[in-house]
Design a binder for these strands. Structure first.
Lengths: 258, 258
DNA sequence: CGGCAAATTGAAGTATTTCAACGTCGGTGG
DNA sequence: CCACCGACGTTGAAATACTTCAATTTGCCG
């Protein structure tokens, strides 16, 4: 980790809490410290008490459970605007690592909790942030309970679109489809989707053979047929696809998504 | 549904919030209404705005996503002490149904939120309740990302032990193993674990053939070999099994669990 | 250029799905 | 009271999908 030597605050570190009052934001920012991590570095160890909570400024973090025998299991990704660390409640059950180079805002636990008690607006923002994360965990459950790997992969790709749409250079609607940068390795993706890297690779190429995606590089694909992917993922096509298009059009209103 | 005709409050309806102040508890109880549901009845419709939040008093509720074509997908179970409904934030994305006969406490949204703002202790209790649910959703993710069905089933059975240990007649340590009542049908369990009823059935019998469980009735099994089940589930045996034994001994200190 | 990690491919073995059929239980109506 | 029905669980057998292990390719870095 690379604690900022000047002890400088995050500029706009509270982007994870969009609807708080300006004065709360100022106080929050004055608590914050910026830290930079390089891909692969550990941010929080599993079951170790941490004296801070944090929000992601840029980059991707990986949440994972590490077993005694060394196996690791990815249980989620954190992006720009996500909060992590347990308020009021000691250790978290997962370790957190940088999946890409990343910048995070650190808030020391005690002052953060004090501010939380004084500022109902922040309190509510934290609560909404967590509720949001709960919904996302349930989205994962639905993806994971697909029995075919191509379906889980399709679900993952669609989730990427809706979830990472706001993250720089991650999702870009273009005329020939939606370009996506995949932030984790095949091995991690395999863990996340409950399978092996070989099967992930085969699933990618199966989707390509069906014409639903195009693999530009291993970590860079074009989604060519969103409705087909949504149908494969077992999503409610009639519901998911229009919402996705809205989301994507919001990034680049000038371009057609389909 | 069976709204109490007398409009009577839940006695001790705030058991979902164990650590709140007595005066907050009193106020909370005075807001509450008890409702009874019979197995199969709907509590909350998907994507419909509800004007209340609730906690489970007794019985089991099923959270599920219903698709346009009628398929249903169980994404979680709610038991005694669990809270549901979104504070501050309109519709929830899942419908809720009674999986067994159940009693729930209803709190009208607006007064509940008002009380929440006035009572930091309740606010914190709600937050902890949600954080807890988030952890549980991640436990599900880990279970679901097991690639063998017997492993997922073993994970489910172990989760039942730790999670439903406090619920009446659900989990009972006996001299020949831990007796468990399974609150949902094979079909629902199949949805929950991402497979088909036939495979669930085969998995149960495979575990029985290995001597790890005994099927007394389809919905009533004895766990005979907790360490083997934990190992199969890919749990950290060294960590999970002792914790489970503590939990189980806490129910009936007079009996040996293993 | 060599070395390494990640991704891919092939082929054999294993597990799951699928479709069909059967058994059991509880309720309904004759 | 008993026959019938439907829901649920179970079982069998063939088709399909996934895992495993081994080998190969690709891209990157020194």
């Amino acid at each position: 980790m690379d604690d900022d030597p000047t002890g400088k605050n995050c500029s706009n570190g509270s982007s994870a809490f969009p609807d708080i009052l300006p004065e709360t934001r100022d106080e929050l920012d004055s608590l914050s410290r910026l830290r930079r991590y390089r891909s692969g570095q550990s941010v929080i160890e599993e079951n170790v008490h941490t004296d801070f909570v944090g929000t992601v400024q840029s980059g991707i973090l990986r949440m994972q459970k590490t077993f005694a025998d060394g196996r690791q299991h990815v249980v989620g990704l954190l992006v720009e605007g996500d909060m992590f660390g347990r308020v009021f409640d000691g250790a978290i059950e997962f370790s957190i690592e940088a999946a890409t180079d990343a910048e995070i805002c650190i808030y020391p636990r005690t002052p953060f909790e004090t501010l939380l008690v004084r500022s109902p607006d922040l309190d509510r923002a934290v609560l909404l942030n967590i509720l949001n994360e709960l919904d996302r965990a349930r989205d994962w459950m639905i993806i994971l309970s697909n029995n075919k790997i191509t379906s889980r992969l399709a679900g993952f790709l669609i989730l990427m679109c809706s979830r990472f749409a706001t993250v720089d250079h991650m999702v870009e609607p273009k005329s020939d489809g939606v370009h996506i940068k995949i932030p984790i390795s095949r091995t991690d993706l395999a863990h996340l989707l409950g399978t092996r890297p070989e099967s992930i690779s085969r699933a990618f190429h199966a989707l390509e053979d069906e014409g639903e995606i195009e693999i530009l590089e291993p970590d860079h694909v074009t989604l060519r047929d969103l409705p087909a992917l949504a149908a494969r993922a077992g999503e409610d096509e009639a519901e998911t696809v229009p919402r996705l298009k809205d989301t994507l059009n919001a990034i680049r209103p000038s371009r057609s998504v389909s």
